[in-house]
């Protein structure tokens, strides 16, 4: 990873992007709590498989310890899904583009208890990224940063293997930060404007973390109320999150 220039790293991260995904099942009107949640969880399950493949393609990720790889993905999966959703929706004010065949406006979430609050936060984040005219190169770097930064304050390494993996992770985080700085520098801004843009983009990640936490809470409630059966991988990722927080 250290041998790559920021530009080369951005190229690698762009190439790691998952393919466009389709739901392939029409969500029929009238929407119900169960049908909307079924579509959203079905999509999340498909996207999780692609996310693991994406993470493995980020230079240096598979050199981390398996335990770090697992923890990073467990901590950030919903943030990564949500940033992807925000990116797909950035040119569609007022709509959330889950897939090309599943586009919802905020009111269409009203049949699912508690989801409109989350839709509104996602739409607000999308509007902010629209204002900032987020570029694709910046988006892919931000998504990689979410992954690499996700468990920084959760686990503290103890064994030599864990310490080595943590050192690699920190180097990787620096490299992706440099890649983001490079992506911002291409826009012809002054140095001052570049620093401000970097701060604005990174500050939005705390908003994404907040919405993700709300989303985890919501999905746990839906699971407890048996609104929707959860698929194996999604269930595993949700359980990991609720175990960490409890």
């Amino acid at each position: 990873t250290l041998a790559l220039t920021p530009e080369q790293l951005v190229t690698c991260i762009m190439e790691a992007e998952p393919p466009e995904i389709y739901l392939m099942k029409d969500l029929k009107k009238p929407f119900t709590e169960s049908s909307v949640m079924m579509s959203l969880t079905n999509l999340a399950d498909k996207e999780l498989v692609l996310m693991i493949s994406w993470a493995k393609k980020i230079p240096g990720f598979v050199e981390l310890s398996l335990s770090d790889q697992v923890h990073l993905l467990e901590c950030c999966w919903l943030e990564v899904l949500m940033l992807g959703l925000v990116w797909r929706s950035v040119d569609h004010p007022g709509k959330l583009i889950f897939t090309p065949d599943l586009k919802l406006n905020r009111d269409e979430g009203s049949c699912v208890e508690g989801i409109m609050e989350i839709f509104d936060m996602l739409l607000a984040a999308t509007a902010r990224f629209r204002e900032l005219k987020l570029q694709r190169e910046e988006y892919v770097c931000l998504k990689a940063l979410i992954l690499l930064n996700s468990n920084m304050c959760v686990s503290s390494p103890e064994s030599p293997e864990e310490l080595e993996s943590r050192a690699k992770l920190l180097r990787l985080l620096d490299a992706v930060t440099d890649a983001l700085v490079w992506a911002i520098s291409r826009k012809g801004l002054t140095f001052q404007q570049q620093s401000t843009r970097l701060a604005h983009l990174l500050m939005l990640l705390s908003h994404i973390r907040h919405v993700s936490n709300k989303g985890i809470e919501h999905l746990s409630n839906m699971k407890m109320k048996n609104v929707v059966p959860l698929y194996d991988l999604l269930l595993e990722m949700l359980d990991a999150n609720t175990t960490h927080s409890s």
Partner: peptide, 23 residues
């Protein structure tokens, strides 16, 4: 349960050398 038991699918997909695709 051990970490590996709790995260069977995630472990399998991470360790699988072939490209992961949706089932």
């Amino acid at each position: 349960s051990s970490l590996t038991e709790r995260h069977k699918i995630l472990h399998r997909l991470l360790q699988d050398s072939s490209p992961t695709e949706p089932s």
